[in-house]
Design a binder for these strands. Structure first.
Lengths: 169, 169
DNA sequence: TATCGCATGTAATTAGTTACATGATTGG
DNA sequence: CCAATCATGTAACTAATTACATGCGATA
């Protein structure tokens, strides 16, 4: 619903938008998106209208007033008691157990973790942040996507620097 | 297997150890742990011996040489091409879509995200890091758990400070 | 003697991914 | 004309959580 609100009208567009923005903390697959859109329509939170492109069928979704209200209620319902951010990551898991390795292998693992954090930072900063800026200029200035993208880039940068100071012999 | 290596012999102990350490980036449930231990035993990577406590049955697992080798191979197999850290988080998702809220509501959301990051940092620093230090003193000085716990605490601290500088009117 | 923690498992449900299946449009 | 992208869905499978079910041991 949030993606629809930001201008992604079709299921395909919702998936594409998620890939280009929320992928790092909330990935979505097409097989999730299509049934979900249908359910939200059945619940009266989205309205659908046929918007074919030539002979190719396309469904253009938009938020109903009830959908807008439900989205805002969901945004307001966040409480700090909710589970904290999960840094779900098999790299950190390996670092956790890295005492089973030799010192050289340990250093190599830390180096690879640094590389990956640096790559994630670069990708967010060079691809995702500019895309969010463009969205802000285009669609009535939503700032959430840009703020989250910058937070992500800076956090990966922080992790990269932190790991550079680790001396895990 | 990593947990068994660090001294958690029973399924219950593995779960408890995960709750007290890897929970933030790799949560485990008992319903996962027990079948997994049985599979690893069947594969010859763990050996099991009956270790009853009075009349209460208990299985004490330990790594076989093949298990030790498999664990090390898994630790070595990490490549930066692997999916980057996922900050899977419904709080970030809400921030992403927060333009649908009023300025006051937005600020309240950011404040709650800060509170939660601060709580996670405090918990890691006051509970998880000391537990990892104790483990290091007890079990032949594994440093991975402590390093990861400190990285987590510092990262949450970074996020908390970052959010304090956000002006999302 | 009752509650809490230790201990082991199964069953049911829910969430999520991957693969399959199909076909139109657009740009090189 | 061929490849990439747009577009929609279903089916099968895998992973993960939650709930259920049971019972001993220690301690307050």
């Amino acid at each position: 619903m949030g993606m629809v609100r930001l201008g992604a009208s079709s299921g395909y567009a919702v998936k594409k938008a998620a890939d280009a923005s929320t992928r790092f903390f909330w990935p979505a697959s097409l097989a999730q998106v299509y049934p979900e859109l249908a359910e939200l329509e059945a619940a009266g939170l989205l309205s659908r209208c046929e918007d074919p492109h030539g002979a190719r069928a396309r469904s253009a979704y938009s938020l109903t007033p009830q959908g807008e209200a439900a989205l805002r209620e969901w945004l307001r319902s966040y409480r700090p008691a909710h589970a904290p951010v999960q840094l779900r990551d098999d790299g950190l898991l390996r670092l956790f157990f890295a005492d089973a390795l030799s010192p050289d292998e340990r250093r190599a693992l830390v180096a690879r973790l640094r590389e990956r954090a640096a790559a994630a930072e670069a990708h967010l900063r060079n691809e995702i942040v500019p895309a969010a800026e463009q969205l802000a200029r285009a669609a009535g200035g939503p700032r959430g996507p840009e703020i989250v993208a910058r937070l992500g880039a800076d956090t990966y940068g922080f992790i990269e620097r932190w790991l550079s100071g680790v001396d895990f012999r």
